[in-house]
Design a protein around this nucleic acid. Structure first.
Length: 930
RNA sequence: GGGCCUGUAGCUCAGUUGGUUAGAGCACUGUGUUGAUAACGCAGGGGUCACAGGUUCGAGUCCUGUCAGGCCCA
């Protein structure tokens, strides 16, 4: 027989390489076939609940890395919670209303104007549901364990009904009102836009400087005095109704050389402005504070029916312009606010498509707003008021979908008055934990500074605003009527609104004093989609039996402070007085390897599905915990390659543990902690601390902390030390002997703990490992529970002793490396070490209760008293001498021994080995060795 | 322009209340093994802690500014 046959070399079929792209989909199919999601949940039915509420991605387009990061992070948390003693359902959601889907229909060749609204909405619904199906399949490829068969979708009747009831609750409290206000108006999509629907680009504009002649100078200014104003939006001059000054800013009345007219310009801008008008010399006739000129009037440049009122407001700056702001309340928010204070007319001279109306004047009517610059200049020039034009490049708002510029424009809109319950919202934030902590500050500032919420949209694809109008156009905002509409939606879906007349939507026999003839009309606007997703706490958490309100956790990208975190908080506090979440976890954005943002145009994007196909989704999942998700995260192929190296290390380590426990049955073979060898006790403690630390990191959502701990544990604690020394035990010692069983006990504990702790992150790999653990009872690893932290008492002394040993080991390794370089030895087994130790250092070794020779992996170890040392090299405090080992090499354990042939039957083996052979391989006595 | 955040070895990350020669893993180089083998061990090189001021006996760690980058807003 061969010596090798008397060794316990590891055996396992677990492949070194995972072939992840091929095996993952097969494994996932098994999960879905077995309805593993439901199995795990039903197992947890009696446990405390943990609800992570899914923020709904928009049902349009391919999933990108941000989606993947989001869903994988949630999956990690939910899987962990389910294995850690919680009933943690995960209902995925989709956001399905809104303009992008309407645009997709248009792109596909459908014409909204050519069909009834209800028909258009059915097309949108079909499109959205198809997108949901596609994205759902893609999410499943990421290995996400969720209730994929019962997602929530914002177009579901029960969701729409819940949303409408939230609206009713707010209306009932008087939070909903109708107003006319400048809003972001997209003429290209003929709709008001939410702030979230806007993006900014730099554009070139023609700005104009012109003069307004004083009409009523209130005894301060003469009638030959002119206010010099600046505008970057010339079309708004048609609706100009005022001139705003900074109350504390100084304004000079000057007369340029060669001019008969006098001009008013802010002192702080005079020097910058004068050259533009060719004013090389001028005399300053007087200086006034802005507030001294308050309520003086001036003529509109050409509109005799209009008048310009001088006003004061704090938003005026000296950064640009003249320090006098031309004010058109219908076309700007600041303008509107100051105009409101002074009671100005809100003139709107542009229609919904961007064309000037009759109110702009006969020569403007019908012209596109952006094409009237020349006309405005002509009119100003004709009135001798034109001073200069100037090209400027500035950041300007655009419709994020049509990519066309937008304008501010006052239109009738429905609002939610955030002002009325702003303080309640801010107070509620104190009851929420934020990860990271600064999230609270960020959300707080946003709520504090935000204005009222424009909730109406002039589109079709969305939840209708459940509002009726009486014959005299009085809006009817009655909570009981709104709830009646909600009931209809719950039964028939919101398309019912568009398929029926107002009278069919109102409760039977409804009357109203404003409708003497019993006639009613209905609102045609729909709700802002942020109201949809912002109502999900009501439409999902409150509606489904297995879920709770408020949710334990909302987890989204940091853009959602302005989005979903925000809108959910507002609707929830408005309707119930409470925040919809107890914890908010926000994540950064994925950046490329250079730290720049990912975008299609830059070509630096990485598709999660491509990663799954090329490397395996496990690699992306492992990447997710390798980075600090609270900040922006770099991703590149190089980074993923590095992560895949880490994956291989983890995989190989698991494989080694499996291979060396394949003949081990915990039930019959395990050795109790007290009876384990010193190094096995030590490692049991290391493992236990590892379990404790990793679980704490999970509990605090510190993903990259888990990664760091796992990688260090695998590389340093296991691979470089414990598994390395283990080979001389596990391979060589008697197969069922105490030394080997002691170590195998720890191996198996480690294998099991590591597999379970990694499962939320690497579920495919963990399940694969599980197939090689015949003694584990559950069919899937996911049906097992997280390892519990054990109590080994006070382990500080033990850990301290081993920390000391590690210092000695470092010194020994350096000494061995020098001996190797000097060609005194090759491998460590050729070495005989002599340590010259102080009494304290000798005590150190005694404290270990272990075979130090084994721990240092040399053939022979001699301990001498330090006082006997002469000319021995000091390695960081340890006097170490390396010689070549003596005796001969055993072909079996490949170590040097001086007792080879002590058993005459086995002349090549050591005494200890011969004993093992006699007991466990008696056939060697007859067969002999080759 | 404003709010929030980030900038430590080639890469991903640690660096407690400011205190001796700034750490880890990976990668890299050298080397040993060839019984974890398309694996594993050991050793080594590598950072003016984005930059510039300031506070302090002393700053990666506090303050100010600049630069670069990200999210959100104007």
């Amino acid at each position: 027989m061969k010596y090798k046959d008397t060794l316990n070399l590891g055996k396992t079929g677990f492949p070194m390489r995972g072939s992840l792209p091929k095996t993952e989909p097969l494994r996932q199919q098994k999960w879905y076939d077995a309805d593993l999601y439901k199995q795990r949940l039903s197992q947890n039915e009696k446990k405390p609940h943990f609800n992570l509420h899914d923020g709904p991605p928009y049902a349009n387009g391919n999933i990108h890395l941000g989606h993947a990061l989001n869903k994988i992070s949630k999956d990690i948390i939910v899987r962990y919670k389910n294995m850690a003693g919680f009933y943690a359902p995960y209902v995925p959601g989709w956001d399905t209303h809104g303009l992008p889907i309407e645009q997709q229909l248009t792109k596909a060749g459908h014409d909204r104007k050519s069909m009834p609204k209800a028909a258009w909405r059915n097309l949108a619904k079909d499109f959205a549901l198809a997108q949901v199906d596609k994205q759902r399949n893609d999410f499943k490829r990421l290995g996400i364990m969720a209730d994929w068969q019962h997602p929530y979708i914002t177009l579901q009747p029960e969701f729409e009904a819940a949303q409408v009831r939230v609206f009713g609750e707010m209306a009932g409290k008087g939070y909903i009102f109708k107003g006319s206000k400048p809003v972001y108006w997209s003429w290209s999509s003929e709709s008001a836009l939410a702030e979230a629907e806007i993006e900014y680009h730099d554009i070139d504009s023609t700005s104009l400087y012109y003069a307004n002649r004083v009409k009523d100078g209130k005894g301060i200014l003469d009638n030959d005095t002119y206010f010099v104003v600046w505008t970057t939006t010339p079309f708004t001059v048609t609706a100009s109704r005022g001139i705003t000054l900074g109350p504390d800013m100084s304004y000079a009345v000057i007369r340029p050389e060669g001019e008969t007219r006098k001009f008013v310009v802010a002192v702080g801008r005079l020097e910058a402005i004068a050259p533009k008008f060719g004013w090389t010399n001028y005399e300053t006739l007087a200086t006034y504070k802005g507030q001294e000129l308050d309520r003086i009037t001036a003529y509109h440049p050409w509109d005799e029916a209009a008048e310009e009122l001088v006003m004061n407001a704090d938003h005026v700056t000296l950064d640009s312009g003249t320090g006098l702001v031309h004010t058109a309340p219908g076309f700007g928010e600041d303008d509107f606010n100051v105009g409101k204070t002074y009671g100005l007319e809100v003139a709107v001279t542009v229609d919904e498509k961007g064309y000037m109306t009759k109110s702009a004047g006969a020569d403007f009517e019908g012209k596109f707003y952006d094409d009237v610059v020349g006309l405005v200049i002509n009119k100003l020039t004709a009135a001798n008021l034109f001073l200069a034009k100037e090209k400027i490049t500035h950041s300007y708002p655009f419709d994020w979908r049509t990519k066309k510029p937008i304008i501010w424009r006052a239109v009738p809109q429905w609002f939610a008055s955030v002002e009325k319950f702003r303080q309640n919202i801010l107070n509620e934030l104190d009851n929420v934990n934020f990860y990271p902590e600064w999230g609270k500050k960020r959300l707080y500032n946003m709520i504090r500074d935000r204005g009222d919420w424009v909730i109406s949209r002039q589109r079709v694809w969305g939840v209708p605003l459940p509002i009726f109008y009486a014959e005299d156009q009085t809006p009817i905002l009655d909570q009981s009527i709104i709830n009646h509409v909600a009931d209809l939606f719950e039964k028939h879906g919101s398309n019912y609104w568009f398929e029926h007349e107002a009278k069919d939507l109102l409760p039977e026999g409804y009357t109203n004093e404003h409708s003497p003839n019993g006639l009613f009309t209905k609102e045609e606007d729909i709700m802002d989609v942020w109201f949809d997703s912002g109502s999900s706490w009501a439409g999902v958490m409150n509606t489904r039996d297995q879920l709770d309100y408020p949710a334990d956790l909302y987890l989204e990208g940091s853009d959602q402070y302005r989005g979903w975190f925000n809108s959910s908080l507002i609707t929830s506090v408005a309707a119930t007085g409470h925040a919809p979440y107890k914890n908010v976890l926000s994540q950064g954005f994925t950046l490329d390897g250079k730290g720049n943002k990912m975008s299609k145009s830059l070509g630096n994007t990485i598709s999660p599905l491509a990663v799954a196909d090329q490397m395996g989704i496990e690699i992306l999942r492992l990447w997710t915990i390798s980075v600090d998700t609270s900040q922006d995260m770099p991703v590149s192929n190089d980074i993923l390659k590095q992560v895949s190296e880490s994956y291989r290390k983890i995989r190989n380590t698991l494989r080694f543990l499996m291979a060396n426990t394949s003949d081990f049955n915990y039930a019959t073979d395990a050795i109790a902690f007290e009876d384990r060898a010193g190094h096995d006790q030590y490692f049991s403690v290391v493992l236990n601390d590892f379990v404790k630390d990793v679980r704490a990191s999970y509990d605090n959502y510190q993903f990259n902390d888990i990664f760091k701990r796992v990688i260090n544990f695998v590389n340093v604690d296991l691979s470089a030390f414990y598994l390395d020394i283990a080979k001389d035990v596990v391979y060589v010692e008697a197969p069922t002997g105490h030394a080997r069983r002691s170590m195998q006990t720890v191996f198996y504990d480690t294998l099991l703990a590591l597999t379970k702790l990694l499962l939320p992150i690497l579920p495919h790999t963990a399940e694969e490992v599980w197939e090689y653990l015949p003694n584990e009872k559950t069919e899937f690893a996911y049906l097992s529970d997280m390892p519990e932290v054990q109590d080994f008492g006070d382990t500080r002394a033990l850990l301290s002793h081993w920390a000391d040993f590690m210092s000695l080991r470092d010194s020994v390794n350096k000494a061995l490396e020098e001996a190797r370089a000097a060609e005194l030895i090759g491998k460590n087994a050729e070495a005989a070490l002599t340590l010259y130790l102080t009494p304290e250092q000798q005590q150190l070794l005694a404290n270990l209760h272990a075979d130090v020779r084994l721990l240092l992996m040399v053939s022979q170890l001699h301990i001498e008293d330090a006082s006997n040392a002469s000319a021995i090299k000091d390695y960081d405090g340890f006097l170490i001498s390396v010689q070549h080992a003596t005796g001969g090499v055993s072909p079996r354990d490949r170590m040097f021994h001086e007792d080879l042939g002590a058993d005459p039957a086995f002349p090549e083996l050591s005494k200890h080995e011969a004993e093992i052979i006699r007991e466990f391989y008696p056939q060697a006595l007859t067969e002999g060795f080759e």
